[in-house]
């Protein structure tokens, strides 16, 4: 199934998530008007979500995003706000 969620992050920018999943996440696409330096980190974050169980916890998502993002600089979003929208899409 394909699900969609969008939220304005607490940090100010809009985040939209489209996720394809059955028991696990098959594909995930994050879009929005935020900034992320370096930009390629978003592809890595999306890839890291593939294979996670559909009821993956918020904390696991945050941990994964932090792990991938490392020193990347997010503006208008945060690992927590990204995880929130992903969790919302998986409801």
């Amino acid at each position: 199934m394909i699900a969609f969620a969008k939220q304005k992050a607490r940090e100010g920018k809009l985040v939209k998530v489209e996720v394809e999943y059955d028991e696990t996440i098959k594909k995930l696409n994050i879009t929005g008007d935020f900034f992320l330096h370096p930009e390629d980190v978003l592809d890595e974050i999306e890839k890291s979500m593939i294979g996670l169980e559909k009821d993956v916890s918020f904390d696991t998502l945050v941990f994964k995003i932090h792990e991938i993002a490392g020193d990347a600089r997010m503006i208008g979003i945060s690992p927590e706000s990204l995880a929130l929208v992903i969790r919302e899409a998986l409801k």
Partner: peptide, 9 residues
């Protein structure tokens, strides 16, 4: 559009 945005959206 911004690098992370969707053209169709």
């Amino acid at each position: 559009i911004g690098y992370f945005q969707s053209m169709r959206d």
